[in-house]
């Protein structure tokens, strides 16, 4: 407001009503802008989903999910096992969005996926063909020192609890180097089958689970874009990519054959 048209020649206020209206409008706009800007900043600083929380089956990738979810809670009402919660203010999860905590109450993988069917917005994606194709996260055997199977016992509870036993979790045989005569049966998660339902984490007998479901973004490593796996490239090309391998002379210490 630079004072233009404020006064006429004789110094009387010319349009006080209009001036007051402009001032009030600007104040309102500025106030609203401050509120909206702080909201935007708050949203930026709030970050990603915490590691203990999983989204329901069929949930879009987190960034899209936050634009799609209407925070209505119909998935929560749809779940027959009361697995899902809506985040309340004060939790680390964006307010009103659905999540579950595998250690407390894992997804039971209903064949008819009632939570997903209840979703009106498509935040839980209907194109999910079966519940076994969902990826709510990925189980990771985090603690190799306290896992009973790693210690040489036959706990196997995570393996037995897994709804995709022998696919999502297998027991891989290794030599028990401590005893020298026994076998270790190492629970091994396979990402192409694991749905992240959390049954393994829920069932783990330790006070703090050795196996945990993590969000995919935290559970999985990622190769650099420039990496090429030689054996895959070779198959794609139908033969070795290097036409003639150099034969280098073998050099050994003289006493060895």
């Amino acid at each position: 407001m630079n004072g233009q048209h404020n006064t006429s020649g004789n110094g009387q206020p010319k349009e006080p009503a209009r001036r007051r209206f402009l001032a009030e409008t600007l104040t309102a706009a500025a106030g609203a802008l401050v509120l909206a800007a702080s909201l935007g900043l708050y949203q930026r600083s709030a970050g990603a989903l915490p590691a203990y929380a999983c989204r329901p089956p069929g949930a879009l990738p987190e960034k899209q999910f936050l634009g799609a979810c209407l925070r209505c809670g119909q998935c929560v009402r749809g779940c027959p096992y009361d697995v899902l919660h809506l985040a309340a203010p004060g939790e680390e999860i964006p307010t009103g969005t659905p999540y579950f905590v595998a250690r407390e109450n894992p997804c039971r993988m209903c064949e008819d996926i009632p939570c997903l069917k209840a979703c009106p917005s498509g935040a839980l994606n209907r194109s999910l063909a079966t519940v076994y194709e969902s990826s709510m996260g990925l189980a990771v055997l985090l603690d190799h020192e306290n896992c009973l199977n790693h210690l040489g016992l036959r706990c196997d509870v995570c393996y037995r609890a897994c709804p995709l036993i022998d696919q999502a979790i297998t027991l891989e045989v290794q030599v028990n180097r401590r005893s020298g005569v026994h076998t270790l049966f190492i629970p091994t998660v396979h990402s192409d089958h694991c749905t992240g339902c959390g049954m393994c984490e829920y069932a783990c007998v330790l006070d703090n689970a050795a196996i945990k479901v993590l969000p995919l973004s935290q559970a999985r490593g990622k190769l650099g874009k420039h990496y090429r796996l030689g054996w895959e490239e070779k198959e794609k090309a139908g033969g070795s990519l290097i036409p003639e391998q150099l034969k280098l002379p073998v050099r050994r210490p003289e006493e060895l054959p």
């Binding site: 909201l39 949203q43 899209q64 634009g67």
Partner: peptide, 19 residues
């Protein structure tokens, strides 16, 4: 109202519902 409707495309999220 205008600003929260503007924030949605800027952030790609239903931001207003957080608060």
């Amino acid at each position: 109202l205008g600003f929260i409707l503007l924030l949605a495309p800027l952030t790609g999220a239903v931001v207003w519902e957080w608060v």
